[in-house]
Design a protein around this nucleic acid. Sequence first.
DNA 1: TTGGATTTGTTTATTTTTGAACAAAACAAC
DNA 2: GTTGTTTTGTTCAAAAATAAACAAATCCAA
Lengths: 250, 250
Amino acid sequence: MNFQNRKRLILQTLEQAGTADVHELALLLQTSDMTVRRDLVELAAQGLLYRTRGGAMRLDLAQNPVRFENKVAQRAEQKTYIARLAAETIQEGDILFMDCGSTVFQLCPFIRHKRIQVITNSLPVVAELISSSVTINLVGGEVDAGRQAIHGLMAERHIRLYQADRAFIGVDGVSVEHGLSANSEHEAGITLAMAQQAKQAYLLCDSSKLEQTSYLQFAPLSLVQTLITDQNAPTAQLAHYRTAGLTVVS
Amino acid sequence: MNFQNRKRLILQTLEQAGTADVHELALLLQTSDMTVRRDLVELAAQGLLYRTRGGAMRLDLAQNPVRFENKVAQRAEQKTYIARLAAETIQEGDILFMDCGSTVFQLCPFIRHKRIQVITNSLPVVAELISSSVTINLVGGEVDAGRQAIHGLMAERHIRLYQADRAFIGVDGVSVEHGLSANSEHEAGITLAMAQQAKQAYLLCDSSKLEQTSYLQFAPLSLVQTLITDQNAPTAQLAHYRTAGLTVVS
DNA sequence: TTGGATTTGTTTATTTTTGAACAAAACAAC
DNA sequence: GTTGTTTTGTTCAAAAATAAACAAATCCAA
């Protein structure tokens, strides 16, 4: 295998996949990482690709990556804490549901290097994971500009065609007595579907939402198996949730 | 075995395999590496093959493949021209399919103020239209990072659940004789589904793609009803498409 | 067949390419 | 900030490919 052949295969791979990493190319080309690196340097010098750390990228993708906004300013610290805990439960090879909550979004940095599959209705999650080792399945349906997410009948039907190991979901309020509540029917439908189609459903919920109810109470607490929250949650309150049958992590 | 015979066999081998290395050819020709090398130098001088270290390569493979960068940046003028024409056919209240081609993407600025519904598998289109008066329905399925689009079985099923007024689609090549062709099966499946589920299918295609064929020929010309192209297209060529039954706009 | 020219194969030296080792730099996590 | 990990660049030795030199074989014509 000489340089010309490798060049051809590298560009072809890149054209198809958009990105490629050094080691993956070395395997494909039956050569060493060092050689691939030298090739990439040469091809980048020729302006045929964009060199990234650990690999290369097609030029057009490096120039205008698709981005969606996500507002995570509030309670960012708690959300990160919760996301870290949630990430620890994930195994390599898992299939996950991730909904469009801002806490769930915080999972992204913790999973981008994992070899897992993520089914999501959140556009920011897609934007965040699109150039990572995660395989993404985007739920289809109506785009809700406000929430930067996909909702509606089709979305729920889409979700119900899949079966996942874990579902990570967020809500607008949760209470032992009244269960889970949301600000919109649409969101409730998605949350419900994801939780039901997963072996394990994890509710990611910062302490400010505990014992709060919101517009629509759409499911009993038993929809989820685990509650992950932050350390500001009163111990007594958490005990209630444990009594109700939930595994509580904080 | 004289030079003429070796020349014939070398070119034949190259035609079939694309590349060949010196030692492999020496074995085939029952001769020494040195002789093969001398032959290759001679043939390269005649412009019949591309000499590489360790062997030789067919000329067309040695050329740089078309870059996506060109696809977006170059021919921008033609694409805008085509998109403007396409936009004129759209009525208020329409339901449209838009695929992930770069020409189709150019439609966005012309439709963002319209009260229409767009069903698309293209993430850039979603990003562009998300804060506009257009209602967006995003096709669900596997996210293809390279093409910034959704592909796969689920995506096709999703599309087939809808019926639209118009489909705006792009291809990698079109010819009167061989119909539409694409660079990947995934893209072909999406294009096919969209065209079939729409009352009117418009092929948006700059003149450089007319009478070109690419990797996979996936549908006859009759899949679409209208061809929209730019003014560089030869009149005689367009006449062929009209004869084949298409409405041609340019 | 014999001499000369051409082509081919072998040996050797030179150049290019490659992979391994290791230090420097970049990045992520804390 | 710091630490630890990953990626990169550099240097160097080994391997591969090439070119050059020369000898052997082949061809052709008189």
